[in-house]
Design a protein around this nucleic acid. Structure first.
Length: 696
RNA sequence: GGGGGUGUAGCUCAGGUGGAUAGAGCAUCGGAUUUCUAAUCCGAGGGUCGCAGGUUCGAGUCCUGCCACCCCUACCA
């Protein structure tokens, strides 16, 4: 609704400028005026035009205002201050249109307004929503338990994917599994050398229900590093083990397969607890076994994207001259090694191959096998050397997002540079490194976990987590703790006696709190994790949002007790245009209107979040909306309202707010699977140690 | 050395491709309430937007130079 209005204002502005001044302009940015007295949407572009036209901006704005043909939904245009062009919406019309959209659809709007690539999506967002979109996230090394850093990755990626889906994109979610890397090798070294275990021993350990296998590996991994430090010669085992795994030979490789698969299963369970699911596990083992690299290598040699370095420190290596403007590779200093002098591929090389496959540029495909069935009905597939029938078509997308921590920006840049060197400019532009910062621990938190800190460390803003030292907060421990605390709160409130219902409520609240906590920060800032903050249920938190919706629903529920058959979504018929203008008009209706206009912004905000790759934008919005509602809730007691038409209007208003609030919550926080939700709950008006992978 | 990030209230953070009076949560203090269960609401105090220049009608936002902290810059992933 609001998207269409914005679009028509932009279009009309460009047209009017051309008519009045004979000047070609681009679409002007639209902003929200500081106060609703000034209107709902504003354009500041007249200040800019003043230069070209050599006239005062205010005069320009006035002339444009006089000639502006008002698009549908706009009541009037005004000029303010030095030259702002402000647009005042037709309030009853907007409320009505919004209600119709939100209340489910109406054939009249069938699929039109915000369909992907349709007229309303913003230019840059349009590309993202067009065709199938691949989101790669989580990608944890399968060698030990997941920690909070991994949760941040998964929650960011999952929320972003939900937002894309809500705006109409077809989304494919992949989790890259580096099951043949050094991280796995290190744990295998631990099993084989430190614990003298056979593959069969490990198999028994995995089956032993009294042992948390991922926690076991967490400790073992730390022990292996202690050993490496005490005895550097032990590093030879690491190289040896890695080679055996890469080549898939012997009991070592079998054990690695056993361990990584077991850990992957545990990671899936952990992520399922916070409502994160995947479509495909893309494994490095298949990238190796199916010679994806060979295909990529041939391509790169043919297009001369890669060269054999014959001198300097990289002698004998195939390298790429890195960076964007790298003309000045003095003695190969700026070159990135892709193939080592011993002929093996580096991690970047494998990643280039994987990404080429993502865009369907490799000319090869994986085999696929079913791996896991989610209770939600989704099937998770896993790559395999030889597949089984029935697999959907994976990869071959036009746009791909890879959620990988920011420390790997350089490496990801190399992948994009490879694309460009191969002539895939468009794909390089649609290959998004969704970079986010890591999660550290506050010094206090680290000490709480039993780490002895030096005085310098105590003064730091955060302490880096380290898988090698076994320092970090395990995801499941945190979730357990949150659930425990939520359960106390649920019991204290005595909403229900049923223990099962209490447990379910506590679980939902815990997940909501955790997901919101991880989303409320911009992805660019380091989160210094602290139990007190993460366990908070008040203020800007997930439970605050959840409770807001509960309140709204309770109003309807109670009202239904005295008015059987009442259905909020059918109120449109009862609320006349006159009533709407009466309650939304300037003076008395300002507070109401403020909420309506805020509630109308969901799609605009969602598109903004997609364009900026910041799910946090939606989190902030959902919070503002909840705040506005809670304020309203306290000032207007609806059920005891004596005036029936006023009461009807208030109920109508609650409905307008609760729909986008619910949609916001579902996308950010909740466990509900969006695909199957009621159309009105979607964010579309009518269409219905080191971190992940490459780190541990 | 090179590349990137961060620096905004006591603390943790928001601040559309420059715009109209710099915001929120927490914490502190003061109010509201036996409810459409308050996981709430209202109010108060609290700011040299790291520093210095520049660009222009207008800068927290853009440019330049500094300062501080962090990350990357492996034939590791």
């Amino acid at each position: 609704m609001l998207l269409e209005i914005q679009r028509s204002i932009r279009r009309e502005f460009v047209k009017t400028v051309k008519e009045v001044f004979g000047l070609e302009t681009t679409d002007p940015p639209l902003a929200f005026p500081p106060s609703l007295d000034l209107g709902e949407l504003s354009i500041a572009a007249c200040f800019e035009l003043a230069k070209a036209l050599r006239r005062p901006p205010r005069k320009i704005a006035e002339e444009l205002a006089a000639r502006f043909r008002l698009p549908a939904g706009i009541e009037r245009v005004s000029v303010a201050a030095g030259g702002y062009l402000n647009f005042h919406l037709d309030r009853p019309a907007l409320a009505e249109g919004l209600f119709i959209e939100r209340s489910g659809g109406l054939a009249a709007h069938a699929g039109l307004p915000n369909a992907p690539g349709g007229p309303s999506a913003d230019g840059q967002v349009e590309t993202a929503l067009h065709g199938k979109v691949l989101v790669e996230h989580t990608s944890i090394n399968p060698n030990k338990a997941a920690h909070i850093g991994h949760l941040r990755n998964a929650v960011l990626g999952d929320t972003f994917a939900r937002l894309l889906a809500a705006r109409g994109a077809e989304v494919e979610i992949q989790n890259y599994i580096d099951n043949t890397g050094v991280q796995v090798a290190d744990v295998i070294v631990g099993f084989e050398r430190l614990e003298k275990k056979t593959a069969d021993d490990v198999r028994k350990l995995i089956a032993d229900e009294s042992v948390r296998f991922d926690y076991y590996c967490w400790d073992l991994y730390a022990r292996v590093f202690q050993w490496y430090e005490a005895e550097p010669s032990a590093l030879e085992y690491r190289a040896e083990t890695l080679h055996a795994i890469e080549e898939g030979r012997g009991e070592t490789a079998a054990m690695a397969e056993l361990v990584s698969t077991a850990i992957v299963r545990l990671h899936l369970e952990t992520m399922r607890r916070v409502s994160v699911e995947y479509d495909l596990l893309a494994q490095e083992s298949e990238i190796l076994r199916l010679d994806f690299w060979a295909a990529a290598f041939a391509l790169m040699k043919a297009k001369r994207a890669i060269r054999l370095d014959e001198r300097g420190k990289n002698r004998g290596c195939w390298v790429m001259d890195s960076g964007d403007g790298a003309a000045e590779s003095a003695e190969g200093e700026d070159a990135k090694v892709i193939v080592r002098s011993n002929g093996t591929v580096t991690y970047v090389g494998k990643d280039i191959a994987y990404h080429l496959w993502k865009f369907g540029l490799l000319g090869k495909d994986f085999g696929y096998r079913r791996f896991y069935h989610y209770p939600s009905g989704r099937t998770l597939w896993r790559t395999a050397v030889s597949g089984e029938p029935g697999a959907p078509k994976f990869g071959g997308v036009r746009t791909a997002y890879a959620v990988i921590d920011t420390r790997q920006s350089y490496v990801q840049g190399v992948v994009a540079a490879a694309f460009r060197a191969l002539g895939y400019e468009e794909q390089a532009a649609n290959l998004h490194h969704f970079a986010y910062e890591v999660v550290g621990l506050t010094p206090a938190c680290a000490e709480e976990l039993g780490v002895a800190l030096a005085a310098v460390d105590r003064g730091r803003p955060y302490i880096e987590v380290s898988g090698r030292k076994g320092l970090g907060v395990k995801a499941d421990d945190l979730i357990d703790r949150l659930i425990e605390k939520a359960l106390e709160e649920v019991r204290a409130r005595q909403l229900t006696e049923d223990p099962a219902a209490q447990a379910e409520g506590a679980r939902r609240i815990a997940v909501g709190a955790l997901r919101y906590f991880l989303l409320k920060f911009s992805r660019r800032v380091i989160i210094a994790f602290d139990f007190k903050e993460a366990l908070a249920f008040e203020g800007e938190t997930g439970p605050y949002l959840q409770y807001t919706v509960v309140r709204a629903r309770n109003i309807f529920r109670k009202y239904q007790e005295t008015h059987p058959g009442f259905e909020p979504q059918k109120m449109a018929a009862e609320i006349s245009n006159e009533l709407l203008s009466e309650f939304l008009s300037d003076e008395p209706g300002k507070d109401f209107w403020e909420i309506v206009i805020l509630a109308a912004q969901v799609e605009v905000i969602a598109d903004q979040a997609i364009a900026s790759e910041e799910p946090g934008v939606v989190a902030k919005y959902a919070f503002r909306l909840a705040q506005a509602f809670n304020n309203f809730y306290h000032h207007h007691h609806i059920l005891s309202e004596a005036d029936p038409s006023r009461q009807a209007f208030l109920l109508y208003l609650v409905y307008l707010v609760v729909i986008p609030a619910k949609a916001g919550i579902q996308h950010l926080i909740s466990s509900a699977q969006m695909g199957q939700s009621h159309p009105a709950q979607r964010i579309t008006s009518a269409a219905s140690g080191r971190l992940p992978r490459r780190c541990g």
